[in-house]
Design a protein around this nucleic acid. Sequence first.
DNA 1: GCGGAGATGGACC
DNA 2: CTAACGGGTCCATCTCCGC
Length: 364
Amino acid sequence: MQRIVLHVDLDSFYAQVEMVRQPELQDKPVVVGMFSRDEYSGAVATANYKARELGIRSALPLRTAHERATEDTVFLPADKTYYNEVSDRVMAIIAEYGDAFESISVDEAYIEVTERCEGNFQKAQLLAQRMKQDIWQAEALTCSVGIGSNKLVAKMASDADKPDGLTVVRPEEAQAFLAPLSVEELYSVGPKTATVLREHNMETIGDIAAAEPQRLVHVFGQNRAQELQQFAQAIDERVVAQQDKKQLSRITTLAEDTRDVATICSVIERLAADVCERLVAHGVQGKTITFIAMSTERDAYTRSQTIAQPCADTTTVAQTCSDLAETFLAEHDAVLRRIGVRVSHFVSSGAGQSAQTSLSSFAS
DNA sequence: GCGGAGATGGACC
DNA sequence: CTAACGGGTCCATCTCCGC
């Protein structure tokens, strides 16, 4: 049967949630920011469409956003806890419409609808309209939906018309739909890859699709070359299925630049507590603990250690991470601006009922 | 040669 | 409206090392 995948993208999610919460914001430019040290340092998380007209977009430094802002532009701090609650409710609605469901982030998800739409794109389109209506009724939120024969096409289709769009790309149209788009619009191509592609005279996705495979392999290596060309040719076999979390981290900007061990360790303690709380909530323990550092020169460093017994314990994580930080500072003269704590290499820490847990007690 | 561990860089939202 | 700058996650790749 013809495969059908939907990609759902909630429009300028943080800003839209704030506009639902405070309807008087509706006609104003709204900028949701992540503040680091003061109201001018940090970056834009999401801007609504009125703010985008002023040239204010995601990842723009808040200082620049303020320069472009008008009198009536509203700046708000990101309230992630609240956005997560709203997201959970919307995701529950989306999940009802799919044979399989996969959330990608707080504002994006895929559903596979092959079976329930019997491979019929007309039925998928009607289903998407009902789903959009359902989300609107329940939360007053709009989303943009893409429908395609796989994840890649669905994702690119949802980008084609926003906000509040619905784009259907049938399998026979997929190649022609992608071909004229510029290379950086292809999912998985960022600024670096785009520059390399341009250096080799590839401007559009169609150019990648038509490229001599050996040429791409020479530039990007076998794996990446094949992925790029298959995506460009609208080929994508990835299944829709919820992925297990593989790591949890928390990074913060220090109140001031420092390389003072005591200061850094006290911040690590707080970050570790936060990460461990989420580990417990997810019912996992981790074996690898990483200290993340970013210098005032914006160089990034990581130092990690794998411990014998997986844990989700603040004291262990904080102590291990502090040791890594201390060693790092002894070996480098970097002054730090941001630091973070990461725990990875998870094993399930269920109440002993899972097969994993039972088996692991026999390992080693 | 193969794995795990560790470090780095690119990409995405 | 291409320079300055958030937080979080995933993945590929490289090196080193023990086997």
